[in-house]
C-alpha cells in the first residue's frame, strides 16, 4: 500500500534544496511512527518518491510525494500522525491511499500551474502578454539532459492569466517536454524587449492528463 501526500513547501523554506527537503520528509516520517518502508543495504533510508523536484527558491502550494508503507494505515490516521511530525512550514494538506500498482506520481505528471508575483509590471503588459501568446511558434533554447537544445516552447504553454501584478500560467512538466517558468519569463520579456522585473514564482499545482483536460495529479 502507498500513500499519496499533498503538502506545502512554504515561502520560508523556499531556499531548501530538493535533497534537503527529501531528508526533512524522511526524518518527519521517522518521527511520525508510521509503518514506513526502508531501502536495503548498509545505509538504509526511508523510501519515498516526489512527483517533481522543486527548484531552490520556489515555494510549492500543493506538492506531492508517494510514501510506500509496510502495513496498512487509514488516511485519517496517516494524516494525523504525519502532521504531528511535520514542521509548521511544511504542512500536510491531504493524503490519499492507493494500492501498490498505482502508477508513480512522477509517471503521470504532465504539467504544473504557477503564479508569478511581480514587484511591478511595465505598462500595457497585458497587451504584450496577449501578443506573445498569439504567436504560433516561440523558439527558445531549452536546457535538457543532453545539453542546450533549440525548440518551440509554444505547445508547452497551455494557459496564462494576468490578475493585477500576478501572472498565472500552466506549463508542461514531464520528462519529454518541460518548460520551466524561468524559460517562459525569459522568452516573454525578450519578446517584449523589456527588463524582467523581480518576482516570486510559486508552483501552485501539479497536473496530470492532457490539455485541455488537465486534472490535479493527486486525483488521477
Amino acid at each position: 500500500m502507498k500513500m499519496l501526500v499533498i503538502f506545502e513547501k512554504s515561502e520560508r523554506l523556499r531556499h531548501i534544496g530538493h535533497l534537503d527537503l527529501m531528508r526533512a520528509m524522511q526524518r518527519a516520517l521517522r518521527r511520525s511512527g508510521l509503518p514506513i518502508a526502508f531501502s536495503q543495504g548498509f545505509n538504509p533510508h526511508v523510501l519515498l518518491n516526489f512527483a517533481a523536484p522543486l527548484s531552490v527558491g520556489m515555494p510549492g502550494k500543493r506538492e506531492i510525494m508517494e510514501v510506500p508503507l509496510s502495513k496498512g494505515v487509514c488516511e485519517g490516521d496517516f494524516k494525523k500522525m504525519l502532521s504531528a511530525a511535520l514542521p509548521k512550514d511544511l504542512p500536510c494538506i491531504a493524503v490519499r491511499s492507493v494500492d501498490d500498482r498505482h502508477p508513480a506520481p512522477m509517471a503521470s505528471l504532465t504539467a504544473a500551474t504557477y503564479s508569478v508575483q511581480f514587484e511591478s509590471l511595465p505598462e500595457n503588459f497585458s497587451e504584450t502578454l496577449h501578443r506573445f501568446m498569439a504567436q504560433t511558434e516561440i523558439p527558445a533554447i531549452r536546457k535538457t539532459k543532453t545539453g542546450m537544445k533549440p525548440c518551440d516552447i509554444r505547445p508547452m504553454i497551455h494557459e496564462t492569466l494576468l490578475e493585477g501584478n500576478t501572472l498565472y500560467m500552466t506549463l508542461s512538466l514531464c520528462e519529454k517536454a518541460t518548460c520551466k517558468p524561468d524559460l517562459f519569463l525569459q522568452s516573454l520579456f525578450e519578446f517584449a524587449g523589456q527588463e524582467r522585473p523581480a518576482a516570486l514564482i510559486t508552483r501552485l499545482q501539479l497536473l496530470g492528463g492532457e490539455a485541455p483536460g488537465f486534472m490535479p495529479l493527486e486525483m488521477l
Binding site: 520560508r12 523554506l13 531556499h15 531548501i16 534544496g17 534537503d20 526533512a24 526524518r27 518527519a28 518521527r31 511535520l86 514542521p87 509548521k88 512550514d89
Partner: peptide, 9 residues
C-alpha cells in the same frame, strides 16, 4: 541561503 532561514523542526 538555507543557513539563514530557521523554522526547523
Amino acid at each position: 541561503p538555507a543557513r539563514y532561514i530557521g523554522g526547523e523542526m
